[in-house]
Write a protein that binds this DNA or RNA. Sequence first.
DNA 1: ATCGTGTACGGTATCAATACCGTATAACCA
DNA 2: TGGTTATACGGTATTGATACCGTACACGAT
Lengths: 186, 186
Amino acid sequence: MDDFTRKMAQAFDAAPIGMAVSHHRVLSMCNTSFAEMLGYDRANLLGQSFRILYPSHAEFDRVRDIGLKAMEEQGSYSDERMMRRKDGVPVWCRFRARTLTPGDPLGHLVMSFAPIRDQLDGAQLTKREREVLSGLSRGLTSKEIGRELGLSPRTIEDVRARLLRKFEVKNTSELLSRMSYARPTS
Amino acid sequence: MDDFTRKMAQAFDAAPIGMAVSHHRVLSMCNTSFAEMLGYDRANLLGQSFRILYPSHAEFDRVRDIGLKAMEEQGSYSDERMMRRKDGVPVWCRFRARTLTPGDPLGHLVMSFAPIRDQLDGAQLTKREREVLSGLSRGLTSKEIGRELGLSPRTIEDVRARLLRKFEVKNTSELLSRMSYARPTS
DNA sequence: ATCGTGTACGGTATCAATACCGTATAACCA
DNA sequence: TGGTTATACGGTATTGATACCGTACACGAT
């Protein structure tokens, strides 16, 4: 076998970041970091739908759409999102994806997942809080998020205020900078 | 050839994040993203010392030591660092590494490099922009940042508007979700 | 020598965010 | 059973953000 190919495969598997490949939202390949991050054995993960790796079915449906346009136009997309470990514990990740089939973005995807924090300093986020946070990180206003979720803007403001209290920050900007990349930990 | 291996190699090469393998600080393998990020052809990069990928020899020496202890103890290390593109332009990256030889951490390294400002390659921030961004990430208002820098709040709003234009984002929240927390490097 | 850009500042106008006041329901827990 | 929390929504009031209008100066590149 080609030594070049073998080296690349070894690097993929030993990568310090979670990596995965999907075809139409079904996992066809992943590396050790990815399986470990989510608490599975790789063998049990391959062939599974990504559905089981998200906190809920609604979340699974939601994340399908939000990067589609960017993927069609630029071929890649990045955001921050919550994944669900096998034991149910949420993992907040920086997510990056590149599609190999721009006409059908979800046809063949290569993704990377970098855990931002394991448990968000103990603060658990509710489903609503995750949904709102997702909108905020995309620059949406409370009104726009309300429309997206079929709720009153007033309710979004409540969730937003709860997030600010939980993380003890002054405003949304500080909140999002805290939810961004992890600080060096060692 | 093993189909499993081939799939992993393909995923490595198409990854949405820069990846590289080194033996004693000499690049032995990298993917397309990595070569593109730094402005090289992969063929010209393999076999080269990492020296040419850092802004200076001093920086090259400095980064050698800072992760060694963590790598010996946990096998992995992560920070943010400046890389140097072929044309000399600096690229600010989130860097992650895992060693496959914990006794001799630099013996065999697998690394990932994620450009932090991936939305606008080549855009450098001015000193003022970094200063303002630092304030924003700490949740300060324009008025507070102005006080901190001894400037009119009006001027801070100008810098802010320029940042929004540069990164093509709608508001400060979206800006900060795309940036790492800012640190003034001036 | 003009052009572009960054810097710095003033004004005005509008919308968004935040912080309060209030009510109400549903879930869970001790 | 009562206490807490999350959800959901209404009003009002204040501050902040954003987008325009304008001027001015410094600097580097073509």
